[in-house]
Design a protein around this nucleic acid. Structure first.
Lengths: 200, 200
DNA sequence: GTAAAACCGTATTTTATGTTACGGCAACGG
DNA sequence: CCGTTGCCGTAACATAAAATACGGTTTTAC
């Protein structure tokens, strides 16, 4: 299969995996069901991904890379830090509470070996943390915010923006929030951050 | 079996269920393994709880009731609202990020039917929300805090106190935080809350 | 004290799925 | 144009666990 076709085929298979995962959960997402939905054979799935966890790890890695790409696009503007945050916030909100991210978190929760969770943490939170750290430090350099430890500032921002939304989504007690919610939460988080980390 | 013995036996069985759940995850927690660990027969498990989900739903409900009981004990003092929060915070932190609560959240995430998650949300968050609402409103009545919508004040407090700790615990990327962390987080949350909701 | 009910321990049935195997078809390279 | 390779679709195998059944024993009720 030519490279472009194969890449396209992988996307279709992984899209099918998301569909089945969201419908049936990790344990209920059988390889056969995924293969049938993608009109692929399970032999192909095993050849390409090794085993079930390999397939979902691939989802995790690819999704994290996409999230990171989205955010980096925002970061490379020369806007001031808080402006960046105001456009970054809603996007981050949507990415972290969206169906795909939640499905992956659910899968990681169900994987008893913890490997999926480790991958998710490493390529997810640990990957976007430095990006946010850069923004925070730029804000400090410009006198927009004041804080001693960058890590705490980033953590505070994430708490204010996302809070417990992910866990509530993961246990299925909350539907995907509309974009308006993300915009509102982002504004509120930014406002609160400005108050709590106000320069002297 | 006499009532007291039966109640004791249920506790033993449910303790065994926690053990196996924490060791093997929801999918890996077989009814037989739980029965053997409790030196019970699976027939008894099925007779008492109906099926696997019933057993874990029982865990959820009982755990939630215990959490609520702990909190209510604090609430019925005549301390001022913020003092209540300062003793309630660390306890709430420990209960929500403790091994048991996390194991239950993990089970709810793995249950594809969503029933466990619904029960967990209903008897968990929805149950403690009104308790916190009472504290918040008392704080407002006493002029310690100022806010328009109680719900938002409670949500803000929970975001500041817990944030994304639960989801990080659920995917296995974080160990149970020590009590000192809870105390620190509680102090910080209270301080931040006081700033953000400062009376005019 | 005894009969019935409840429970234990284990075997069994049933069902589901991860994984492998294979015949047939299409695409690709020379 | 043809052989090889890769993929599809389905079948088959192995395993594991949910749920049921049952003989033997303990507990309960009267």
């Amino acid at each position: 299969m030519r490279e472009e076709n194969r890449s396209k085929r992988q996307e279709e298979i992984e899209a099918a995996a998301y569909d089945v995962l969201q419908a049936k959960g990790y344990a209920g997402a059988s390889m056969l069901a995924i293969a049938k939905r993608a009109r692929a054979s399970n032999e192909t799935l095993y050849n390409w991904y090794g085993d079930k966890r390999g397939l979902f790890q691939s989802l995790v890695v690819r999704n994290a890379a996409e999230v990171k790409r989205h955010l980096e696009a925002e970061l490379d503007t020369d806007h001031d830090a808080l402006s960046i945050l105001s456009t970054l916030g809603p996007k981050l909100f949507a990415l972290l509470t969206g169906d795909r991210a939640i499905a992956l978190n659910r899968a990681a929760a169900a994987d008893s070996t913890g490997e999926l969770g480790a991958t998710l943490a490493k390529s997810g939170r640990a990957a976007i943390f430095p990006l946010l750290a850069r923004v925070m430090e730029r804000a400090r350099d410009d006198g927009q915010l004041a804080f001693a430890r960058t890590e705490e500032a980033v953590g505070l921002y994430l708490d204010l923006l996302i809070g417990d939304l992910q866990i509530r989504r993961v246990i299925g007690s909350l539907a995907q929030p509309p974009a308006a919610d993300g915009a509102r939460k982002s504004d509120q988080a930014l406002r609160h951050l400005g108050i709590l980390l106000a320069p002297a």
